[in-house]
Structures are given as structure tokens and as C-alpha cells.
Design a protein around this nucleic acid. Structure first.
Lengths: 416, 416
DNA sequence: ACTAATTGTTCTAGCCTGCAACAAAAGTCG
DNA sequence: CGACTTTTGTTGCAGGCTAGAACAATTAGT
């Protein structure tokens, strides 16, 4: 991420403060100037200036504050402007693709989710499909909307630097320069991607009920098993973006061969295939069919299913205990199909995680299921791009005039 | 660590730049002004000003540059002043205590290492012992030396926030407010501690031949097994400082009971006890005796030892593969007794790590033995405190005048 | 000795935030 | 209903910090 330390000048200061204010507004959607001043520690006059600049950039609007909270002049309220920066968020799964237009503040303009037959598809087909799906969504955006870029959640091993898909087993891909292809086909410069567990973690941290815990682990059970890590409020992606492949850590040397080639990976004990095996269900059934079927039987009181879920929960707990010892997080969030099954897993997960974890890190951690539901990957994908916008609001909207009165100066339309 | 984002003013800018320059000088020991300007991107005039302030704080000295590299006026050279900030670095082990006085730039003024009989000792005894050992070292420092604080490496689970030893099994301690005790006994305000693996990682990153890799994992084999993590150039300590207890992650559900109470921890396969067991040596022998004995036999070509080391290396490699998949580091450094045995472990470690790791993260990682030798914990302990000094050079030396000409203004002596 | 190259030194301009003084807009209380 | 209190917006100024330009200093090369 950041290189060795460099010196900075006043403009960097401005960028930082602008970014701080925009970040708070992005999360809270609206804040009064006085709330902003308190939260950031900046002076009234500085906040005024910063909000003015953000308004000029089209990222926020300011209204006269409403009254009611006590004596004193009501404070002006700054509201995030969703159309100021819109992300085309994409979730690419084995059996469906979801696309959404998400604006600043997390506002979802539109969303489509199209199932398709599972199995291998070429990257070109997928990109074409994406273009078809996204066109109407982009059309439907307000005319003053600015597209910030594309954020994608991909079930696979993705290099973050250039959005290169090293391998995506369920899609049958390897070595696909996906970001470049999407960029070329859709015509957007900024195309960012990461795997769904990383993005689930980001979504939980930014938009979940994480209570602003700054160290969290998101455990995603999909076809494979992966984790996303937020360390000190930032995504921990590793040197190349491959971090979080905890599904492929050995927990059982006497276990089964994993599709990665190694033996006894965590995934072989808690992945979807393990679930099907334990429950005595054919793997042929589709993913959603499987969990639905198991939930149905569990609610019906099928004892075989309880045994299976207890066994799965036990292994899930062991892995989570391992993660607690390794990372010392203050929150572990359960996502993917684990989340759907969690009521039946909770007890065994807690028990075996506690057995595994050392006392000290165990005492300060909470384990919770995700509450974002199925949108978690899309939200994370959008936040990936928003992070860039927020880090440098000015350069993002560099086509706009950066000085002069907002109301008076005419905005030059792009020609071409 | 850092809380939610706050706004900053110009003083913060200054602090950042001062810190940047001091950091570079701390690592390089001396740099010309022009080198600093190039590296930091700051202007000549700014560098001059910053160096001036650091000189006034007594942290660097400036000399006329030596000539020789080409035409042009020689650039002044700033040299780090070791006595400007001296850390009392302490390594607390089961069978010995090491104490050193380390100055800025990593200069070691003095060092003592005293063996004592293993086994439980009370915290009070240890603190008293430390006071006795450190007194002559502090006496021997130059009269103008400023003590920055105490940094300690402790073999145990330590809360970084307040230096609270949650548990240190080999010392027989639990719930010891060690930092507070040391602070009270020695009279230094700043007492910081962490476990030896965290500090080994820090030492490797700051003073090892890490090649400035910003993502590294240090694997420390002592009585227990722990890892230290550097993520993006910063120590990753977790929410409370307990991160890195990878020795207590399950790798073998059919394995042995660990002293932590769980079954099949990595430590039970690669820790010192496992080594003794595999080699058929009594655990009674002291730590150093054990590795020396095994090295002797290995050099003599004892086939039983080769089998034992291969088995240990295999498990070590599995765990390292797990870590590579989880963290995607660009460097793994082998420390502790693993480092001493590494020539005999290397092959099996590499083989099983490669089998375990996914292709993508495996291709970009290197595995190397530590080259810092036995000083790694002491160096890390000093860097822990130096990080604080470097983060805020001005407030560190707040007793000195912060303005006016360095040569002319008299320094007020502390009274009392 | 003269020239080119590089860096130190000094002064000024520009950016940014904080502060103080005043104005504006609410609630409160008699 | 009006004076008072409280809180916040507005504005102009001061202060801190870095960049840049102009000039001086110092060295190598010819």
C-alpha cells in the first residue's frame, strides 16, 4: 500500500481534512456543521470552508438546519449527494451476476440480479453480459450523476494491483486480466476488484453494525471458504491482495484432499461440499437449494441434520479459534451460507472456538452473524471504489472548477 | 491504534515531516541534506529548517559534507546522535536476562546478559534484578544522554496498551502489571513491552536485511512458538496486542494435548518439546543445550536426527504454508531455534510449505532465516520505544527550547 | 583562472487552519 | 412581548509551514 515515508506540504493537509469530512458524511449521510466540527476537531471556519469546497465539487449539498434541539442558532446541515459519485458495483458468482448503481452515502439507485446456468463461462461472455446488464442502470441515473468507477466482487484469487484474476476455480478461469477487459468494454478508467470475503469484511466495517470495531474478521462460507480482514480500520489484503485464503490452511492432516491439491484444508471440513456430505445430500443440488433444504429439515427436527450441523459448527469453531489466536480481533462476523445456518451452528461454534482460543484474546472478542444479508458483496465492492474517491475528493472531480463561487461560476460541459 | 479520522492543522504537518526525516536518519545513521531532499520530496529550504530543529533537539548533528562525488558544492551531512535518545532494552527469558542501552540509529552503548537458573521467579525478583543490572549501564552513558524509556521483550501474552502480562507460562506468571512495576522501580515514565516474536519481526523489518519488504512474518521458535507480523510496514499487534499466537492454531486434531489446554496446536508439532521428543532427547536439558546437542549430532551424520529434523521441518512448512495463505506476505523470516537448525530444515520446510500454499501467494514470497542472531529481541524492544520518539520528536524532548538559534541560546538546566 | 554544476542561504509568496469579534437565529423567562 | 442567554454562521486577520526564486558558496574539470 503506502510506500516509505515522504514529506508533505499544505495541500496534503487540505486533502486530508477534505477526505475526513467527506468520509464522515459518506457514513452518516448527513451531519450538521457543528457535529462535524466536534467530531473532527476542526474549527467552525475551517469546516465551513471544507463543506463549501465539497459542495462546489458536487459531493454534498447544504441546507439551513432545522430547529428543535435547544437554544442557539440552528447549525447548517450538510447532506451527502449520492449522484456526486456513483459506483457500478458488480458481484460475479457461479450461478448469478448482480449489478447495482450505488451512490455516495451508500444509496442504491438500482439493482439487478440475473441467474444463469452454473458452470464455466468465458471471461468475454461475462464481460459482455455485464455490459448488457449495466447499460439500463447507467441510463436510469440522474443526468448530473458522475460515475466514479466499477467495483467488482469475484469469487477467486485476485491481484488487487491491476485486477488480475489469478484463478477462479468455480468459473473455470485462470490468469484473466479482468479489470482491463471490463475497463476496455465499459469505458471506465477505474475498475477495482477483490474477492468476496475481503469485500464482505469491508461492507461489515463500513455499513454493518460493527459498532466501529477497528479489528474484524469476516468469515465467508460460499462454495469455498475465505476470510476478509479489517485491521485497524483498513482492509488487510496482503502484499499482492491474496491475503485471507484461510480456507486453505491445514486443520486435519488425516482429512480429505482439497480441490487446491493440499490435504485437510479447513475448507474440506466446513465448505459447501462438506456440508452436503455431512447432511447426506447430493452435491448436485444448487447452492441455494442446498442450504434451503438443510434449513427445512433442521426446522422439521431431523436429528441427522443436527448431528451434521454440530459437526460443521465444531470445525467452524476450531478455525475461528485459530483466527482469534492469530489476529486478536474484537469482532468476528459470520457470513455466506454460515450466516443462514447460524442459529443451528452458534452453540457448537462458540464452544469449540472457546476451547481453541487462548483466554486473553477470547475475552475481548465477539462472534456475530452478518446482518447485511445478500448485499454484502455489492456494498463492499462499492466501498472499494468510494475509498478512492474519499481519499482524494478534489482530483476525483478535477473536471470541475476548484475555486470561485459555486453558484455563480458556470460549469463547462465536456465536449466530445 | 489510531482512532477514527480527525482533522489536522499545520503543526501536524510539521510533526509528520520532522518524523519522516528523523526516521530516515535513524535507519541510515547519516544522510546528506540533498539525499534527504530527494528521498522525502521536500524542498532544500525545508530540509534545512527541519534538520535545524532536530539539531536543536539534540537528536542529530550536522557536519560539513565531504567532497568527492562530482562537481558542485558538497552537501552538509546530518548524522544521528545516539545519545539524543537512549532506550533501555530488556529481554526477559526463562533462563537469562539481557539488558542493553541502545541509542538512536541502533547504536549499542553497552550490553549484559546474565544467565540464571530456570524456573519460576516472582515479578518482584525480576524487577529487582533488572534494576541491579541496568544501573551500571545507565551510569556508563555519556553525560548528555537522554533516556527515552524502557522497551521489554517478554515471552508471554502481553497487553500492549499498558504492558500487562496476561500470562507468561515459562515464568509461571499471570496477570502481572509488569510495565507499571518497572516504571515505579526504575523511575521511567515510558515502559513498553511486547512478546519476543512481535519484536523479532520489528527488528527484522527495521534493522534486518529485509530489503524493505513491507509485509513480513517472523516465525519464532522458542520454548513456545509464536509469530510476529509486519503489515504494510507497521507491527500488526491486534486489538489488544495479543495477535500472533499462531503457535496455538490447530493443525492436527489427532495430535497431542498442548500446554494451552487445546489439542493438536502447531506448537505441539514444532515446539522445543516436540524437537526433544522427535530426537529422543530428554526434555530436562536446557534450551541451548538441546539445540547444540542436536546440531552436533546432525553434523556427525546421525540418521535418527535427520529423520527428526525432517519431520519437524515438514510441520514447520505446513504452518508456514498456512501463514502464507492467510497473510500473503512477501517475506517469511525464520527465527529462534529454527534459525539455528535451519540448514537442516530448509529443504523439508520449503517442500511442505509449497505443497500447502496456493500458487499465487507462493510465487511472490521468500523464506529466509534471520540474520540478526540473538540480538533480535533486544533490537526490537529498542525499536518499539524509538517508534514513539520518532513519531513525535518535539514532544519527546520538550524540556529543550524549541526556538531560537541552537548555538546561542543557553539550555536551562533542570532544577531539583 | 574560468566554467558548469550542485548546494546552502535568505526572503517572500501562497496555502491552510485557528482565533477573535461580530452578526444571526433560536430558546427562555419574566 | 422584549430582553437575555446560548449556539452557530461569517469575516478578516494572524500564525505556522512549505515552495520557489535569487543569490552566494564550493567543488570538479579544463
Amino acid at each position: 500500500m503506502s510506500g516509505p515515508r515522504r514529506g508533505v506540504a499544505s495541500e496534503e493537509l487540505r486533502r486530508h481534512n477534505l477526505s475526513t469530512v467527506l468520509d464522515r458524511l459518506h457514513i452518516a449521510k448527513e451531519l450538521s456543521r457543528s457535529e462535524l466540527a466536534t467530531q473532527t476537531g476542526l474549527n467552525r471556519s475551517t469546516i465551513r470552508d471544507l463543506i463549501g469546497e465539497l459542495a462546489r465539487l458536487g459531493l454534498v449539498v447544504e441546507d439551513r438546519g432545522t430547529t428543535g434541539t435547544g437554544p442557539g442558532r440552528p447549525s447548517s446541515v450538510a447532506t451527502i449527494q449520492p449522484a456526486g459519485a456513483v459506483v457500478l458495483a458488480v458481484e460475479l458468482e457461479v450461478d448469478f451476476m448482480a449489478v447495482a448503481t450505488v451512490g455516495l452515502g451508500g444509496h442504491i439507485f438500482d439493482k439487478v440480479r440475473v441467474a444463469h446456468s452454473a458452470g464455466p463461462r468465458t471471461p468475454l461472455e461475462i464481460v459482455e453480459h455485464l455490459a448488457t446488464l449495466s447499460a439500463p442502470l447507467l441510463q436510469a441515473l440522474p443526468s448530473d450523476a458522475t460515475i466514479a468507477g466499477v467495483g467488482m466482487a469475484v469469487a477467486g484469487v485476485v491481484r488487487r494491483q491491476d485486477g488480475f484474476v489469478h484463478v477462479a476455480p468455480n468459473l473455470g478461469w485462470s490468469n484473466v486480466p479482468l479489470a482491463g477487459m471490463v475497463s476496455a468494454r465499459l469505458g471506465f478508467d477505474r475498475v477495482m476488484m477483490a474477492n468476496e470475503a475481503d469485500l464482505g469484511a469491508l461492507a461489515e466495517y463500513r455499513r454493518g453494525t460493527s459498532g466501529r470495531n477497528r479489528h474484524l474478521i469476516f468469515v465467508a462460507g460460499e462454495v469455498g471458504v475465505g476470510i476478509g480482514i479489517i485491521y485497524d480500520g483498513k482492509p488487510m489484503l496482503g502484499a499482492a491482495g491474496y491475503a485471507g485464503e484461510a480456507g486453505h490452511t491445514m486443520v486435519n492432516p488425516e482429512g480429505r484432499m482439497c480441490r487446491c491439491g493440499a490435504i485437510g484444508c479447513w475448507e474440506t471440513e466446513v465448505g459447501e461440499e462438506a456440508l452436503a456430505r455431512l447432511a447426506g445430500v447430493s452435491t448436485e443440488e444448487a447452492r441455494e437449494g442446498l442450504t434451503a433444504e438443510i434449513l427445512r429439515r433442521a426446522h422439521a427436527g431431523d436429528p441427522e441434520i443436527f448431528t451434521a450441523l454440530n459437526e460443521l459448527g465444531r470445525w467452524l469453531g476450531v478455525g475461528i479459534g485459530n483466527l482469534i489466536n492469530t489476529f486478536n480481533p474484537d469482532l468476528v462476523v459470520i457470513g455466506g451460507f454460515f450466516q443462514e445456518l447460524y442459529p443451528f451452528l452458534e452453540q457448537s461454534v462458540n464452544q469449540s472456538a472457546q476451547e481453541m482460543a487462548l483466554t486473553a484474546p477470547w475475552l475481548s472478542v465477539r462472534i456475530r452473524r452478518s446482518e447485511l444479508g445478500g448485499d454484502s458483496a455489492l456494498i463492499g465492492a462499492s466501498e472499494l471504489v468510494f475509498a478512492e474517491v474519499i481519499a482524494n475528493p478534489t482530483s476525483f472531480a478535477s473536471h470541475l472548477p476548484t475555486s470561485g463561487s459555486g453558484e455563480l461560476s458556470p460549469v463547462t460541459k465536456d465536449v466530445g
